[in-house]
């Protein structure tokens, strides 16, 4: 079942002398909600997502999941990355079962448990193959199975589809929210793709940069599944685009762009 996530006055600096990457971020995400976090590259959105996963601890403030402060990663709040990062010495089903093995299940039990998940994600004839022979989209599906296998309360997505071809991307943009809705999983996606945000989220948070703050918020009250050609989709897209432009702090932001980029990649 989905969990709530609250970000309490989070400020983050990568070193004490550096300018803050994130400043005074304070927001709450409800159980089962689907939220997109958008902003220019270098605005700290990915840093914020790493904090939600417990992979990074904020210098000030804290992140709470179901009111409990998190201090380390857990398979219950699980992150998917831009790269699938599968383990090439394991088969597809072993990769998908890895989180369950870490949770203490034997390999046989874990592999059996992920079987229906692989069927659902269209990998039924790939279970035993080497992951290196899969396409990018199939690899990302294995990573999705791996994330879902541990029954997460929260699924964190860090631009997970940006390296995929358009067809696969569109399919996954439709499938992932459907799975999360069905299972009540709280979903948070970081993206710089406005279409992706409108296609996948109930609510979009827009971040500014230098320092990274949440400056705008937009509800996307469209029915599921969402079609890119629908009028409603196009209206929300326009609105999001306008709000996004409104937050652009122009030349100043662009000048400091490179510096923030570097500090973020250092994370």
């Amino acid at each position: 079942m989905g969990a709530s996530l609250s970000i309490d006055y989070v400020t983050h600096q990568f070193s004490p002398s550096a300018a803050p990457t994130l400043k005074d971020i304070d927001t709450r995400i409800e159980p089962g909600e689907m939220v997109a976090l958008i902003g220019r590259s270098g605005c700290g959105k990915s840093t914020l997502l790493h904090m939600m996963a417990g992979l990074l601890i904020p210098s000030q403030g804290c992140i709470r999941i179901n009111s409990r402060q998190i201090s380390k990663p857990s398979a219950k709040w699980n992150m998917m990355f831009q790269k699938a990062s599968l383990y090439p010495w394991m088969s597809v089903k072993e990769n998908a079962a890895l989180g369950l093995m870490f949770a203490g299940l034997s390999k046989a039990e874990a592999v059996e448990k992920v079987d229906p998940l692989l069927d659902m994600l269209g990998l039924h004839d790939k279970k035993d193959v080497n992951v290196q022979s899969l396409s990018g989209g199939q690899q990302q599906r294995v990573a999705l199975a791996r994330s879902l296998a541990t029954d997460p309360d929260i699924l964190l997505l860090d631009e997970p589809f940006s390296a995929l071809d358009a067809f696969t991307r569109t399919a996954l943009q439709e499938e992932v929210p459907a799975i999360c809705r069905e299972r009540g999983i709280t979903m948070i996606i970081v993206t710089h793709d406005i279409d992706e945000a409108v296609a996948m989220a109930d609510r979009v948070l827009i971040m500014s940069q230098n320092p990274g703050r949440i400056v705008e918020e937009l509800e996307v009250d469209l029915p599921w599944p969402r079609r890119h050609m629908d009028n409603g989709f196009q209206t929300r897209r326009e609105e999001l685009m306008n709000r996004f432009k409104g937050t652009d702090n122009g030349l100043q932001g662009r000048q400091q762009h490179t510096a923030t980029d570097q500090s973020e990649s250092a994370a």
Partner: peptide, 16 residues
């Protein structure tokens, strides 16, 4: 390095 990150994220302990 992503292999470490993914494994930590999936809850791997040191020995695992």
């Amino acid at each position: 390095p992503n292999w470490f990150k993914v494994a930590r994220n999936l809850g791997a302990s040191g020995p695992q």
